[in-house]
Simulated scan of single mutants.
Amino acid sequence: MRIATATTLLAIMLTAATGAAAQPAYPVIPEPMIFDMMRPLGAQKGEMEVNALAMTTSPFRPRAAEWAPEVEYAFADGKAIEFELPFNGAKLEAFKLGLQAAFGASADGRSAHGVQYLGIYDRETGRYSNSLLYMAGHRFDARWSMMNMVGVDDIALQRRNGRNALLLNHATFYDVAAGTIAGVELNVAGGRERLVRVAPQLHQRLAAKVNVQAAAGVEKHRHHRARPTLGVRLVREL
């Protein structure tokens, strides 16, 4: 998809969010660790966060780790932007831009939904790709909540060579105690690689604005055996 078409998608997304009627307060739902959000759906203007995710299937080979520092900023109520630098070991592989818009809350403030756009420029190939996802979260009670994200990766006008592939992310969370959240995240990505990953995880708040998240799970790529995967994300709100 050309960049101009991607820009049109962003304009539609932000216009729809701006036109939403007044809604109940947004529910407090944790963000998935691996496929994270650009601030919670109910983020207020001015909120800012820096974080970094590191993932590896070879814990004893640090150079094989994939990691990505990023900055997230809510430039308006319910709207956020993200800049990310994906690395593979010491190599900067891409530049990544994300935009997110909340559409409102319902069910007396227990449910919320929105949309997320991701644009990635691959430095090696010079190729630009897009993905677009719909997000729907729900808080069942004081302890249980979930976040669902479903969409299309590598958007194109014609489906070929793995483009227009399914993206699916589901996360279920349980608030164990104040500052401690347990969860499990399911990632499914179509296309050439066809990845499926299941990642049980723990989120622990260390200070008022510092959070650490850790996951240990398993992933399976097409034509490859299932293998263990480890991950950690450090979060600092500003």
Score class of each variant (00 low, 15 high):
Leu92Gln: 13
Gly126Tyr: 05
Gly98Tyr: 11
Leu85Gly: 01
Ala107Gln: 11
Leu92Trp: 13
Tyr117Asp: 00
Gly114Glu: 06
Ser106Ile: 05
Glu124His: 08
Asn130Glu: 06
Glu124Asn: 10
Gln116Gly: 07
Glu93Met: 15
Tyr128Phe: 14
Tyr134Val: 13
Leu85Gln: 08
Gln116Pro: 07
Ala94Ser: 05
His113Arg: 12
Ala107Gly: 00
Ser106Ala: 13
Ala94Tyr: 01
Glu124Tyr: 00
Ala136Gln: 15
Ala107Phe: 04
Met135Phe: 11
Gly89Gln: 11
Asn130Trp: 01
Asp122Glu: 13
Leu132Gln: 03
Gly137Arg: 10
Ala90Leu: 09
Gly109Met: 09
Ala102His: 01
Gly126Lys: 05
Gly89Leu: 12
Ala102Met: 04
Arg127Ile: 11
Ile120Leu: 09
Leu97Trp: 04
Ala90Trp: 00
Ser111His: 10
Ser111Arg: 14
Leu132Trp: 04
Leu85Pro: 04
Leu118Glu: 03
Leu85Lys: 15
Arg127Tyr: 06
Ser111Ile: 11
His113Thr: 06
Gly98Arg: 15
Ala101Gly: 06
Gly126Ser: 03
Gly109Phe: 07
Leu118Tyr: 07
Arg123Thr: 08
Ala112Tyr: 03
Asn88Ile: 09
Glu84Phe: 03
Gln116His: 10
Val115Lys: 02
Met135Leu: 15
Lys91Glu: 14
Glu93Tyr: 07
Gly98Pro: 02
Leu118Asp: 04
Ala101Gln: 02
Glu93Gly: 07
Thr125Lys: 12
Gln100Met: 14
Asn88Phe: 13
Ser106Val: 06
Glu124Arg: 13
Leu99Phe: 15
Ala94Asn: 02
Ile120Met: 04
Ser129Thr: 14
Ser111Asp: 15
Arg127Leu: 12
Gly126Pro: 02
Ser111Cys: 14
Val115Cys: 04
Gln116Arg: 11
Leu118Trp: 02
His113Asn: 12
Ser106Pro: 02
Ala105Leu: 06
Glu84Val: 11
Lys96Trp: 00
Asn88Pro: 00
Phe87Asp: 05
His138Thr: 12
Gly119His: 03
Arg127Pro: 06
Gly98Leu: 14
Asp108Asn: 13
Ala94Gln: 07
Ala105Met: 07
Tyr121Leu: 09
Gly119Glu: 01
Glu84Thr: 14
Ala112Lys: 04
Arg127Thr: 10
Glu124Lys: 12
Gly126Val: 05
Asp122Tyr: 00
Arg127Phe: 10
Ser131Asp: 09
Arg123Ala: 03
Leu132Asp: 06
Gly104Trp: 01
Glu84Ala: 15
Ala101Arg: 04
Phe103Gly: 07
Phe103Thr: 03
Gly109Lys: 05
Ala90Gln: 10
Ala90Asn: 12
Ala102Gly: 10
Leu118Ile: 12
Tyr134Leu: 15
Ala101Trp: 02
Leu97Val: 10
Arg110Ala: 10
Pro86Met: 08
Ala107Met: 03
Tyr117Arg: 00
Leu97Thr: 07
Gly109Leu: 10
Gly104Asn: 10
Ala136Thr: 09
Lys96Ala: 09
Asn130Leu: 02
Leu132Ser: 01
Lys96Pro: 03
Tyr134Met: 14
Glu93His: 07
Tyr134Glu: 07
Ser129Phe: 02
Glu93Leu: 14
Phe103Arg: 07
Gly98Val: 09
Thr125Asn: 04
Gln100Ser: 11
